[in-house]
Every structure is written in C-alpha cells, then in structure tokens.
Amino acid sequence: MTDTMPSNAELEAIRPPRSQWWDVWDQFKTHKGALLGAGFFVLVILAVVAGPFLWHIDPTYIDIRARNQGPSLAHPFGTDQLGRDTFARMLAGGRVSVAVGVTAMLLSLVLGTAVGVLAGYFKRLDGPLMRLTDLFLALPLLPLLLVIIMLFRDTLRAAFGPEGGIFILIVFVIGITSWMQTARIVRGDVLALKEREFVLAARSIGTPPRRMIRRHILPNVLSPIMVSATLGIANAIITESALSFLGLGFPSDFPTWGRLLFDATDYLQQYPERVLWPGLAISLTVLSVNYIGDGLRDALDPRIRGR
C-alpha cells in the first residue's frame, strides 16, 4: 500500500484543475429533493411545450353537449362549464404561466441583483439607487398597474399581437414591481462582503471593479439571490393569475393556470376537482423550483459541498 501511494499522488498531480461546475453537479446529485424537483420541473416544461402537439383537442373548442363532465378517457381531467377539455387547457395554460413565471423572475432577479450590487459596491450610487428602491416599494401597485396597462396595452398589442403584447406587458409589470426585496438583500450582503480581506487582497492585485464583482462579489451573494429567485417564480405565477382575475391580464378566454383557478372557484361547490388541477400544478411547480433552488444553493457553496 505504501508503494502505491506516491504513484497515486503523482497521477493526481498531473490531473489539471477541473471545472468547478463538475463539483457543483456532484453535490447537486446528492440532494434528493433537488433531483426530484428538477425531474418534475423538466417534466412540466416538456408537457407544456410538447403536450399540445400530442394532445390534439383544441383548448378553445367548445363542445356544449359534453360540459361539466368528470374525468374520463376522452377527457382525463374532465371538461368545464362550456365543454372545453380541461387537460388541453391545463397544457396550454401551463405554457403561458411557466413562461411568465420564469421570464418575470429572471427580469426581477437581474434588475434586483444589478441594483443591489451597484448600490452596495459603489458608494456614490448607494444613495440614489436605494432611494429609487424605496420609491418603488412605496408605489401603490394596483393604480400603477392600471395606468401602465391603459397606456401601453394597445400599442403593444398592435406591435406584437394580442397575446404577445399582453405577455410582454405582464412580464414587464411583474418584473418591475418585484425586484426591490432582492436589491435590498443583495445590497446588504455586498456591503458586508466588500469589507472582507479577500476583496482587499484582490484590490492589491489590481483587479478592476467589474472583475471584482464577477469573481468575488457575485459568487458570494448567490445564496440570497437563489432564494429570491425560487420565491420569485411562485410570486410571478400567482401575480399573473391575480392580474388575469382583475381583467388586466390575458383575455378571459385565454387559458393560464391562474385563469383556470379563478374560473373554477365559481364551481367550487359542484365540481371541486376543477380547482384541484390548476392549484396542484401551481403548487407542485413552485415546490419543485424551491427544491431546485435549495439544491443549487448548497451545491454552489464549497463549504457545504461534500457533507
């Protein structure tokens, strides 16, 4: 055994440093919840992207004679009060809801992280940017949404079509109104991080600010960013349903998970399963994203890695 030790050591010494992402993946694999969550999320994405091509019933096709049916082979999730197939509507609605959730979350994340890092790192920008954040936090959301939608709905519709225009509008509205929490948390972390000695060490090496942020600041504020990202998706899906409910979102016959949920609440007494499908879809998607975020956060922190 003692003979083989040095040769092993030599073999390892020749091995070049491997990419950190392999370590991250190795750790991610050990987190069962995260793997399960990732599996489910991929399944949901596949279903909503490829599903409508396999399930040929048009979600807007009204078959009034087959209305209010329970689950059957022809309609696995049953039909609604107009006889539209709930399964097809779920697939079509999921496509919009997941797309809105992910894009709005990304938008608010990028905005929040950028504002937080800039405010925390550059002292001169701190005051103005944080006052801007306070301003957005203090804005009354609903009147703001009404004004934005009144002002831009028609122009966006004309430019990108009725669904595309509303999609852009909703993503923009959700993103612009939910970045403040992220910004505040990130700013606090950056302020503390900036005083750490490794940042000073990087400064003594002559690392310019942009690389300092990318190499030293961002990787170390990843945990709070990850948490707000996972919460952000849930928040975005639910806000979108609330907007649709208020008539400010997508047209009423255009299915989204939130829309389906609110439509079904009218029939809660007679057909409780109709609330169940969209409700379950939203909750499980949000849960799976939370687990993915949890696993990613652990995997990205070398101190937790390998435990």
Binding site: Q20, E197, L200, A202, I205, R211, R215, P219, N220, R303
Partner: peptide, 27 residues
C-alpha cells in the same frame, strides 16, 4: 504585494487554490 493577517478572511471561500493563486496571473 501584501500578505494579510487573517488567512481565513483573505481567501475567497468560493475559489479553488489554483484559482486564488492564479488570480494575479489572470490579471
């Protein structure tokens, strides 16, 4: 160059040793 007091605080916990030693070379 500088050698710092607290060796724990002066190394970025998210970089490998190769990354830390290589940073000045990258710059």
């Amino acid at each position: 160059q500088m050698v710092f007091q607290d060796p724990q605080a002066s190394l970025n916990p998210r970089m490998t040793v190769a990354g830390i030693i290589g940073e000045p070379l990258d710059e």
